[in-house]
Design a protein around this nucleic acid. Structure first.
Length: 525
RNA sequence: GGGCCUGUAGCUUAGUCAGGGUAGAGCGCCGGGCUUUUAACCCGGUGGCCGGGGGUUCGAAUCCCUCCAGGCCCGCCA
């Protein structure tokens, strides 16, 4: 059984027929692919719940009330004055890092493109801006309760996380006169107002029914579980560590009168060989960038095929090819078999693979067959590199029997992304077709005297050859026969000269793209 | 120091929670086929003391103990 279905069953036992799946994000900078794991994990469980006949909603909570922590590398110094201000209330940065003045908030600036990418991936959540929940009083009861139980909460956090809280710690951080939470000291509580003094010496009061302050993270998280009646919210392994926010969240949530979700911890996505993604080190790839390379169902498949507690190495190189082609094969030839013919392992494998395949569809319940292009990524990458004209690629695919008529929508999209991939920095070197500029030493050493003779002969016959695919093929054949070597050997010689390898894609197509003059220069050995 | 996760063929892994059929698969590799090599396509083959060691059991990749190795998390940063 697929993990999403397994979790759905568990939730049904624990929570009954009505489920709320949630994931969250802090829009403090560019949102990267790692964040997608949380989202897709939750969304796939949501789909599995629906498939199991449960009522289910999927909400996406944006931590728009969270303060700007520091001036990130992509921000100008002007953001110094916004530190401590909620992300929903400060201006978005321009490309050069300076604040804009067109009214778009910092939170929206980073959120909107991400939501666009999510739509492409087929994720359409109920978006909840946390600052709005504060603004419309959604948090008020929990805030009041947290303030009443502040001693217990302090005790929970200190004992479970092992952290010492400051003497003036208070389970609510009001905004000061300048709009920042930093340096604001709570001086008292008269429901529904929290009195404060800020770092400028100004005094004021914050209405807990409005967005005039927020709960600290560990309390905020626990409170929202109850507010939205969340039954499952996958948490990154950072939250899952002993004494982490999940552990403190459980008792705090109960203290505030609600039943917390069960613990579910997911591992992180890493860029192959480069450790965890992090925007501060620049070690990151965004979902939008990833969608420029491979279609959305492949991104979904990346998550769907991996167990939640295993880390994923996202490799934009050859491993991505393999995964994409694995998806193609899976859809083209899904596992079958009746229960009585299979042993337990085989049944589980079958159900897991089918589950992963179905969950990879952009549309819930979509037919996997609609997403296949019928051509492997590797093959397409080769064609895209040796043929600049799309129509020639379709002809080639018809000739090779990959397609019968016009290319499908999926295939057209596949090719356009493939060209994008090839032109970008993520395309794997071992898949790149590199035409030699001169015959390498290695190539020379690998050629027999017969092959050299063949190449010399070919050089003169090609002079008069019409420069089309068929003519080139015929010319190669005639020369092969006249020199008297095997066809195999003649082609191997050609590949050594053209690519510096002993094999390669259809030689005549390569030669056609290279052009006569350049090719003849190459043969000048 | 505290804790989490992982270790199965050259690589990626399924199976571990619910112990039982010679440990499945894909990639790679090797060989063959396609009246000449498309990195295509088709067929076949190679390959694993399931990290090591103990234990429980009629039976262990699976449960328990222990050791080793790798990755990661633990600042009012989510």
């Amino acid at each position: 059984m697929h993990w999403a279905d397994f979790t759905a069953q568990r939730l049904k036992k624990e929570r009954g027929d009505s489920q709320t799946l949630a994931s969250g994000i802090t829009p403090s900078g560019e949102i990267h692919l790692g964040n997608l794991r949380e989202i897709l994990t939750a969304e796939m469980i949501h789909r599995a719940c629906l498939d199991a006949g449960l009522e289910s909603r999927y909400i996406f909570i944006v931590d728009s009330m969270d303060p700007l922590r520091r001036v990130y590398p992509f921000l100008s110094d002007e953001y110094e004055r916004y530190i401590g201000h909620p992300l929903a209330f400060i201006p978005a940065p321009n490309p050069n890092g300076t604040p804009t003045s067109d009214g778009v908030s910092y939170a929206d600036h980073f959120l909107q493109p991400f939501l666009g990418a999510l739509r492409q991936i087929g994720v359409v959540p109920e978006v909840i801006m946390n600052h709005e929940t504060y603004a419309n009083g959604g948090f008020a009861a929990k805030i009041e309760s947290a303030i009443e139980h502040q001693d217990e909460i302090r005790e929970i956090i200190q004992s479970i996380s092992g952290r010492e809280l400051a003497n003036d710690w208070f389970p609510y951080n009001p905004l000061g006169s300048d709009g920042s939470m930093d340096g604001v000291v709570v001086t008292g509580y008269e429901s529904p107002y929290v009195n404060w003094t800020d770092r400028h010496g100004e005094k004021g009061k914050a209405d807990i029914r409005k967005a005039e302050g927020k709960l600290p993270w560990r309390v905020d998280w626990a409170a929202r579980w109850g507010i939205h009646n969340i039954s499952c919210e996958p948490a990154g392994k950072d939250h899952g560590a002993a004494g982490g926010s999940f552990d403190t969240g459980l008792p705090i949530c109960r203290l505030l009168g609600s039943e917390p979700p069960g613990k579910m911890v997911y591992e992180w996505i890493q860029l192959k060989g480069m450790g965890p993604m992090s925007s501060s080190t620049g070690n990151t790839i965004g979902p939008i960038e990833a969608l420029g390379l491979v279609p959305p169902e492949i991104i979904r498949y990346l998550i769907a095929r991996s167990k939640v507690n295993r880390h994923i190495d996202f490799d934009t190189g050859s491993a991505l090819f393999e995964m994409a082609d694995e998806y193609e094969r899976l859809v083209a030839n899904p596992p079958t078999g009746d229960d009585q013919d299979l042993n337990k392992r085989q049944r589980i494998a079958r159900d897991t693979q089918i589950g992963a395949m179905n969950l990879s569809q952009v549309a819930h319940g979509g037919d996997p067959a609609d997403s296949v292009a019928g051509v492997s990524f590797r093959h397409l990458s080769m064609l895209a590199q040796i043929k600049s004209d799309d129509d020639e690629i379709w002809s080639s695919l018809r000739a090779s029997g990959h397609i019968s008529n016009e290319p499908s929508q999926a295939l057209v999209g596949r090719l356009s992304r493939m060209r994008n991939w090839i032109d970008g920095p993520h395309f794997p070197d071992d898949a790149r077709i590199a035409i030699q500029s001169s015959v390498s030493k290695e190539a020379r050493e690998n050629l027999t005297s017969e092959q050299v003779a063949f190449l010399a002969e070919l050089r003169s016959t090609l002079n008069d050859c019409e420069w089309t695919d068929t003519a080139i093929v015929n010319c190669i054949r005639r020369t092969t026969e006249s020199v008297g070597i095997s066809g195999r050997d003649s082609y191997i010689a050609l590949y050594w000269v053209i690519l510096g390898k002993h094999h390669g894609p259809r030689a005549s197509s390569l030669m056609g793209e290279i052009g006569r003059d350049r090719f003849l220069d190459l043969l000048d050995i």
